[in-house]
């Protein structure tokens, strides 16, 4: 889908948001397809890999809770609400794969906290929620980027990079929804 072919920016944004679930589901499917590869090579994983996976799992569980907060806030309107739920679904898939991989490697998956400290008082509009989500997704991209080189097992690094790609798409779509320009702020991430 190209924004350059659309008549009005607002309409194009709406259309993009409505269709983004279809685009993003591809990354999730690719990640799930990598599950068997992870299991097959688990013998080569280091114990440090389990620690990395558990930190990532903790962050994914927090992201699921954050999107839940946004969805229940009554601040999000369609199609942004649908978008938030789609992204939450991706984070749930990430968490499931991470937890099952940790188990396969003999580790104990982190559990969701009973309570998360989100800046609820600062979330007063749809824009506030989107900014909050965008901030988390940007951080997630950096976190996975910082974790990928640490994996002893290259299949795990590849799977983490797959999640990184998904988080980066989330961030870009949220920036688009916020009307931020440029939507993709730079050629490189850090």
């Amino acid at each position: 889908m190209s924004f350059f072919l659309m008549p009005a920016p607002v309409a194009s944004r709406r259309q993009f948001l409505a269709h983004s679930g279809l685009v993003l589901s591809g990354a999730a499917v690719a990640l799930l397809a990598g599950k068997d590869a992870l299991a097959a090579t688990s013998g080569h994983a280091r114990s440090g890999d389990v620690v990395i996976l558990n930190t990532a799992l903790s962050a994914e569980l927090e992201a699921i809770a954050a999107y839940q907060l946004g969805a229940e806030s009554n601040l999000l309107q369609k199609p942004v609400l649908e978008l938030a739920l789609t992204f939450q679904g991706h984070h749930k898939q990430h968490a499931e794969v991470l937890a099952s991989t940790i188990k396969k490697l003999g580790g104990k998956p982190a559990l969701a906290k009973e309570k998360y400290n989100f800046p609820v008082a600062q979330l007063k509009s749809q824009t506030d929620v989107l900014k909050f989500a965008a901030q988390l997704e940007q951080g997630a991209v950096s976190a996975y980027l910082g974790a990928v080189p640490l994996f002893g097992n290259r299949e795990l690094a590849k799977a983490a990079a797959s999640i990184l790609g998904d988080e980066a798409m989330h961030w870009a779509v949220l920036r688009q929804a916020l009307g931020e320009s440029p939507v993709v702020p730079s050629a490189f991430m850090s």
Binding site: A59, E62, P119, L136, Q138, G139, S142, G146, S190
Partner: peptide
């Protein structure tokens, strides 16, 4: 902003 995946200034994450 890179730290914001896991950290916040005023509360634990």
């Amino acid at each position: 902003k890179r730290c914001l995946a896991c950290h916040a200034l005023a509360y634990d994450r």
